[in-house]
Design a protein around this nucleic acid. Structure first.
Lengths: 283, 283
DNA sequence: AATGGTTTGTAAAAAACTTACTAATTAAAA
DNA sequence: TTTTAATTAGTAAGTTTTTTACAAACCATT
């Protein structure tokens, strides 16, 4: 079963023969309409016979036309485009706005497939009983580390976050059993962070990596929450990776909260309420 | 046309008569299977006649059974649950992992609908010609402000980010025409930030708000990129809002990059390449 | 130009869906 | 409790849609 039938169609466009390509083009031109058409209408639009449309459907591993429409409808759902195409120089603001949001959604869908709940569980096991937690990140991952600190300080565990490589090294070297160091890195190839991971493990600390699978960093961690890094082909800034990492932080924080049990929820509410004073009341 | 047919079905369950409820229950029990069944199979499963299933479909504003299946398929697409239910105390790691990712996706879909590309455009207009840019955020929004700084420093414009209220006040007061201050706030009700916005505008700076529509902060900004803040009903801290804000930052950064034109991409590539030294090469 | 393979369409069959009508059930009133 | 009206459910026939089988046309190759 193809994960996204629209991608398949555009990818296989060249390998199709004349009539089937006509069908493909009609569908690609207005996929929404295709989901609402009968095989007869579609065949007429593509100027081919009905069986041709049927054969076309089967070529894409669907049971037949109705099943094909179902797949198509799924691919189009949510208004998420079949290929989150990259931003192009002459896009207007509406166009690039939508493309970026779509790309982010696509990244999250990928994350959902790749993140291993088992690893989340192991990471939570460690975090819940940590004497102290440290979040390390550099560059674009530094705000992520800070965000994590902002979340975890609520758990009444000592939490720090460092973006300073020297501080990271020193803390890693000074750490001991019971300390948990969470290292966030998009590529998992930053030398400094790999060193820090090694140092920390040598000192007995548990090292949790939120990073790319099979990367050098991943190999030096006690627990790895794998976040697959799609090539950022586009404009040269990391975009979606931070968001995937932040989502992992959310998941870990939730995991810890749940383990803490219902009494702990009251504590969180108190923290939240403490901000009331600083705000204009809602109308 | 119902926005989400699964929600509709569970909501209207009580108002259905006996046979139709049987149909509803069969569908609710395994919606995926329903999309693959013919009307005959479904009728048999629900122990009712085929026309009953057909009537059931029409009750939900669909043209008939095939159309109903289409709607169903859309609602089930991406594996995003029909109601992104909130995390519950006895969820296991797989369950809460998926729920959180789904909620994040849902938030982005909302963002896509609410963000006004026109406002993005106006904000980019200002950013592109800024003498200086300042990003302000407090609490959970502070990492977002930092992330923004990390993106915008690449544009060769002086950029700062402050989470210190006093620094924010002073900078706002000292600002002048040509300066752009971007204030990030989830609620738009933080007194300090509203004050800062007022101060900055009095000094002649342009104030861009990334915040809730119609909030006190929004009223004091020159340009508002509205990010609707869904009630975070849960006790579990603000989650999705940061991600929505970060996505807006991505969009703004992309907008600026596009305006800078193709030559500028080379400059961005240089910045990226400058990191090569610090990394282990990809295998 | 002939041949083999592929592609495409025609027509018939099968499946699926819808409609109109009737029977059964239920609820309310006498 | 019986009658009546209204609702609900099913039967059967009709219609549409989809699929299959087969034959014609096309294309590339020799």
């Amino acid at each position: 079963m193809p994960s996204n039938i629209m991608q398949q169609i555009s990818a296989d466009l060249e390998s199709l023969n004349r009539s089937e390509r006509k069908v493909a083009e009609v569908i690609l031109a207005d996929p929404q309409a295709a989901t609402r058409s009968s095989i007869a209408v579609l065949a007429r639009a593509a100027q081919v016979s009905e069986p041709t449309v049927n054969r076309f459907c089967k070529r894409f591993n669907t049971a037949g036309f109705p099943d094909f429409k179902l797949h198509l409808a799924q691919a189009l759902a949510h208004g998420v485009p079949y290929v989150s195409r990259s931003v192009e120089p002459d896009d207007d603001s509406e166009s690039y706005t939508n493309k970026i949001i779509d790309a982010t959604i696509a990244a999250l869908v990928t994350t959902k497939k790749t993140v291993d709940p088992q690893m989340i569980n192991l990471a939570v096991d460690q975090l819940i009983q940590a004497k102290q937690i440290m979040f390390f990140g550099l560059g674009a991952s530094w705000p992520v580390a800070q965000d994590a600190q902002h979340k975890f300080f609520r758990f009444n565990i000592p939490v720090v976050a460092y973006d300073d490589v020297l501080m990271q090294r020193m803390t890693a070297a000074a750490s001991s059993t019971g300390d948990v160091i969470v290292i966030i890195s998009y590529t998992g190839r930053t030398r400094e962070l790999v060193d820090v991971a090694e140092l920390a493990r040598a000192s007995g600390a548990t090292v949790v990596g939120i990073t790319a699978p099979n990367s050098p960093l991943a190999q030096h961690c006690s627990i790895v929450v794998e976040v697959d890094a799609p090539e950022d082909t586009d404009v040269y800034m990391p975009m979606t990776s931070r968001i995937m990492h932040l989502t992992v932080i959310d998941i870990l924080a939730t995991g810890v909260t749940l383990r803490r049990g219902p009494d702990f929820l009251k504590h969180l509410k108190n923290i939240k309420d403490s901000l009331k004073e600083t705000r204009y009341p809602a109308k």
